[in-house]
Amino acid sequence: MNVMPNHWIDVGALDDIPKRGARMIKAAHGCIAVFRTADDQVFALDDRCPHRGGPLSQGIVHGTRVTCPLHEAVIRLDTGEIDGPDDGRVTTVAARIESGRILIDGEGLAILAEREIAS
């Protein structure tokens, strides 16, 4: 990916999110869910389940997956794909940890916003 370092946006401290938990970020064109796994990996995804739009940030996090709170679709945090036979994919935004802070990819965020406008 051709992401410049200055495109990373600091969205908060790692400890702001419980292990096996998630928080929501309000962005210009909707919400982003930021997940923290038991082993301290972070992932950022569009906060909408491809099934019926459920807020994924409210789901139960297990391993590198989240179960949607509305109808129990299981989403892979690394790829955004639905785990199982169903089709569908959630848009992911690159995220990483730097000195205990969570950074998400500003460019990815912008792409997500453009897509939102286009649709």
Binding site: I9, V11, G12, D16, I17, R23, M24, I25, K26, A27, A28, H29, C31, V34, L109, A113
Partner: peptide, 9 residues
Amino acid sequence: PLVDLTGLG
């Protein structure tokens, strides 16, 4: 929310 980025957007 963890953070509000609407202004940034």
